[in-house]
């Protein structure tokens, strides 16, 4: 009960060694990675390996996060969140105790940075990955809760979406533990704060909206209309509009449904891109962006050649492209 008064915010310096009270492991601080509502995260090094250490004056919150990470751990081969390496307490020189845990350090780029530098077509693909992960999370009876752009990073190569902050992860049927207003359907008057799969899907749709509205926007007097109008007005989101609208209005009960619809959209999108590039006789947008894989950059050429041959062959070619993209997507997963 008296935990709040005496504790000061922790500020580790580079080179400082944090020694655990119970397990006696030590960690050398390298740099600060960030801080949030619950504590700060530091990059540290132990036995030659880099790890992330999260420490907080709120012992109970740390314990709750650890509980979540532990349940993820029980699922073999599933990479839900970073893996948990150690849980311990640190006692500062004046005798005050802080709780911390150490997890795998995920080196990557923030979602928005990654998509901006590697091409917008990645947004949809990464979202598909995320939907796949959410699906397994939901099947285990959990909802991510505080799903937002800042909590998503992309590790690469190969590009893989990972989430980094599990503080909001809540058992299905309970009330969402932690949320961020812009990504919260309760804030937009578009649903409850009960933990259910559709809560995450709303937030995921908002992540996509947020990508094109990085400064966010106010909800105004009729939040739902504001949001749907914004969605409608954002030209880059046009192709995703139907999927996003379904997600925002709670039409999807499972991530699998949304994933299916989104992959449909993504494949359609690729076809229209091919058509576009053909008409304009410009370089294929996909291959010019960046060298991804051999397979991928060759495909548009194949379609181009077939075009001059026969319309039936052309549609065959398109189907082929779609198939290859689908395989590529499966491969990514």
């Amino acid at each position: 009960m008296n935990q709040t008064s005496k504790k000061r915010a922790i500020d580790f310096r580079r080179g400082q060694v944090v020694r655990g009270k119970w397990h006696h492991h030590h960690y050398t601080i390298i740099s600060k990675l960030g801080h949030g509502a619950i504590g700060s995260v530091y990059l540290c090094e132990s036995n030659g390996k880099q790890m992330a250490l999260k420490i907080s004056e709120k012992s109970s919150s740390v314990t709750m996060e650890v509980n979540v990470l532990k349940t993820f751990q029980k699922v073999q081969g599933n990479r839900l969140g970073p893996s948990l390496l150690d849980v311990d307490d640190w006692v500062d020189p004046s005798g005050v105790q802080y709780s911390f845990y150490v997890m795998e350090y995920l080196r990557g780029k923030q979602l928005s940075t990654y998509v901006k530098s590697h091409g917008e077509e990645w947004l949809g693909i990464l979202m598909l990955q995320l939907l796949g992960d959410l699906e397994s999370l939901h099947q285990q009876g959990w909802v991510f809760g505080d799903l937002k752009t800042e909590n998503l990073i992309v590790t690469y190569p190969p590009a893989r979406m990972r989430w980094i902050d599990v503080g909001g992860t809540t058992q299905i049927g309970r009330s969402i533990k932690e949320y961020t207003e812009f990504f919260d359907r309760g804030y937009w008057n578009m649903g409850t704060r009960k933990a259910e799969p559709s809560y995450d899907l709303f937030a995921l749709a908002m992540v996509m909206v947020h990508f094109y509205h990085p400064k966010r926007f106010e909800r105004g007097s009729s939040p739902k209309r504001t949001l749907l109008t914004k969605l409608n007005q954002t030209t880059q989101l046009k192709k995703y509009e139907s999927v996003l609208k379904n997600a925002l209005t709670g039409q999807y009960q499972t991530s699998e449904q949304m994933k299916r619809d989104l992959s449909h959209v993504l494949m359609e999108k690729q076809i229209s891109k091919e058509n576009y590039s053909r008409k304009d006789k410009v370089n294929k947008p996909v291959s010019s962006k960046q060298p991804v894989t051999q397979k991928r950059s060759q495909m548009p050429q194949a379609t181009q050649n077939k075009k001059s041959v026969h319309p039936i062959l052309e549609s065959l070619g398109i189907t082929l492209v779609v198939m290859v993209f689908y395989l590529f997507y499966l491969f990514l997963n």
Binding site: G173, R174, S175, I176, G186, T192, R193, K194, A195
Partner: peptide, 8 residues
């Protein structure tokens, strides 16, 4: 009240 009513 929205938040709290999401509780059991």
């Amino acid at each position: 009240s929205v938040s709290m009513n999401a509780r059991i």
